[in-house]
Design a protein around this nucleic acid. Structure first.
Length: 566
RNA sequence: CGGGGAGUGGCGCAGCCUGGUUUAGCGCGCCUGCAUGGGGUGCAGGAGGUCGGAGGUUCGAAUCCUCUCUCCCCGACCA
């Protein structure tokens, strides 16, 4: 491709509304263009890079015995009602009506459609296992798009669905996909990290995410400094230490705590560590007020609580709701509470003689003990893990970092097959629901993550495997016939040899061309100039290296081939 | 949806508070010519704007008021 003919312009300045590196650079390099909030056009350069990623994914999925197909972007709304996920997705679903007033939606994902398809194509255990996948545009009316391509409303996603007769078989395929995913990120030249994940709106039991470590990532990752434990903070667990001040079990005793409401204030006032207190937090779960209790030195993980309650919507309760439930904010405890569901973190069993609210203003109770003084409806882990806590596996110190989620694997089990009647006849003659797994990769997001991870102050530094072009020929002084000839010759030879090459044939100064080459991040740059031609040579430079090398013209192709092979 | 910010030629901004010498200006980019030719080159000339939209106040509105649309950032969601 000749740069003079390339559709897409480079920008010296980034648009003011772009603030992540990938957003700024992809726009500046003329790779993407925003159309509306969370909706982007891919220009030729961006599209080429995207397709490179797509093909790597395709190859690895095929190698893992996946079979590519294409499901529709438009789906009848009823199938979402069948699984009840219309409510789960809610406003995130783009819905509309056709001319006959039938309700349709743009698919945010395709479990329903694929499971319906399985219903028609799987009858016997002999039909299993299979793993169809597609690379399709998904639509989600996100509450908030952000970060350029990092979070958008229309995006390309590779989604695979595996179907099995047994969960053991699912487990095997799952492991295989984990490896396929590792291959994909490796081949894209990206460092990834697999973490334990929440299964969210998709449902299912085991779930892992692949993260690209990046400051701009939306997810917090909790990982162990010693062992291989790593999890999304929304589901990370940790070993809860016993409080230091173990105390004898004494009878309940009321103490006056005028004006002291927060755990810190109360602990400070009484001269005790926060781990010697119990904290109450009120939530509204689908409108119902929930009383949560956790040891004072921990915070409630709302996602864990939400999963525990199996509710659709969870938020902090409003003051009105708290009052209506006759709870005393600032001095509440589960002691004597009736009529409100109490969910406690298991940390309340670690330690004794806690200070808790007295359920009246300006007073707390000392020496509260579970289960001696109060009952709870649910006792489980609802605590938020943090850096500095102990690893649940090896008790070493946990650390935290941020990451961009670029892949997600779920063991769905039979949730969808049961609801949508995807069953098979087993060897023993009984009918069983198909066991399923599903596996997604956000392709555009991966592209953005690649830029987040590979750029410098000059621009993008594409890994060779996903670069839109491999070679950038700078023809300096296009008024010099010899330069034009030599550049054209090299350009066509390289193309004939199968290289992907950009020829900068514009009548621009050297600086402009160098800067654009750097901005676009093309891995190899070849300079053809009067100066170099005098020595019958061209200058070869790698984007990720400082120094360039003078190479005799007849050896350039060989040289480039060598550099790309590494 | 809650909180914050912004809409002025393709991009980045100034002007707005204290309405009127602004026929709305600057830098970049774009076009023409000459020069230059190895890290965003210089000089000269030029094209390009419903000042997001609607309504209002006023003799007069980019500037003041009301409504509205759009976009960005922070929170609840996810590939």
């Amino acid at each position: 491709m000749r740069v003079s003919r390339l559709f897409g312009k480079t920008l010296r300045q980034a648009p003011a509304d772009a603030d992540t590196a990938s957003h700024q650079l992809l726009v500046r390099a003329g790779m993407i263009h925003q159309v509306a909030t969370g909706i982007y056009s891919y220009l030729p350069l961006g599209w080429r890079a995207l397709r490179k990623i797509e093909n790597i994914i395709r190859e690895e999925m095929d190698a893992a015995d996946g079979q590519e197909l294409l499901l529709p972007a438009m789906q009848p709304f009823e199938i979402w009602e069948e699984t009840g996920r219309d409510l789960l997705f809610g406003e995130t679903l783009f819905t509309f009506k056709d001319r006959r007033d039938r309700k349709l939606c743009l698919g945010p994902t395709h479990e329903e459609v694929i499971t319906k398809l399985a219903h028609f194509n799987i009858q016997s255990y002999r039909d299993l296992p299979v793993m169809p996948y597609q690379i399709q545009t998904k639509f989600r009316d996100e509450p908030r798009s952000r970060g350029g391509l990092l979070r958008v409303r229309e995006f390309l996603m590779k989604d695979a669905y595996s179907m099995h007769a047994t969960s053991e078989d699912l487990d095997q395929t799952y492991e295989r996909l984990v490896q396929a995913y590792r291959n994909i990120y490796d081949r894209c030249g990206l460092a990834s990290l697999m973490v334990e994940a929440d299964s969210g709106a998709i449902g299912g039991k085991d779930s892992h995410e692949f993260m690209i470590i990046a400051e701009t990532g939306e997810d917090e990752i909790i990982y162990c400094s010693e062992c291989d434990y790593a999890a999304n903070s929304e589901r990370a667990s940790f070993t809860k230490p016993e409080p230091e001040n173990e105390q004898a079990t004494l009878p309940l005793e009321e103490v006056s705590t005028p004006g002291k409401k927060t755990i810190e204030e109360v602990a400070d006032f009484l001269g005790i560590p926060t781990s010697q207190t119990l904290k109450a937090v009120f939530y509204a779960a689908d409108g119902q007020v929930i009383f949560s209790v956790i040891r004072g030195d921990f915070e409630v993980n709302e996602l864990k609580l939400k999963n525990t309650l199996k509710c659709m919507d969870l938020r902090l309760a409003t003051d009105d709701e708290v009052q209506a439930a006759e709870l005393v904010a600032g001095s509440a405890s589960p002691i004597g509470i009736t009529g409100t569901k109490v969910v406690a973190d298991d940390s309340i069993t670690l330690g004794t003689s806690f200070v808790v609210g007295a359920n009246k203003p300006d007073a707390h109770l000392k020496n509260a003990n579970y289960p001696r003084d109060f009952k709870v409806d649910i006792l489980t882990d609802i605590a938020m893990a943090q850096a500095g806590y102990q690893c649940p596996k090896c008790k070493s110190q946990l650390l935290s970092t941020r990451g961009i989620e670029v892949g997600h694997l779920f063991k769905l089990g039979t949730i969808f097959s049961e609801k949508l009647d995807a069953v098979y006849l087993d060897q023993d003659g009984t009918q069983k629901p198909v066991v399923m797994g599903c596996y997604g990769i956000g392709v555009g997001r991966l592209l953005a993550a690649a830029v987040e991870q590979n750029h410098d102050d000059k621009g993008i530094v594409w890994p060779v495997s996903i670069a839109p072009y491999q070679v950038y020929i700078c023809a300096l002084s296009v008024s010099d016939e010899n330069v034009v000839k030599a550049a054209d010759k090299l350009y066509s030879e390289l193309k004939d040899e199968g290289f992907e090459v950009l020829l900068d044939d514009r009548d621009e100064s050297a600086g402009v061309k160098f800067n654009d080459a750097d901005l676009m991040g093309i891995p190899l740059r070849v300079v053809i100039s009067p100066r170099n031609l005098k020595q019958n040579s061209a200058e070869v430079k790698q984007r990720n290296q400082k120094e360039s090398e003078l190479v005799p013209l007849e050896k350039v192709i060989e040289n480039l081939r060598g550099l790309l092979a590494v």
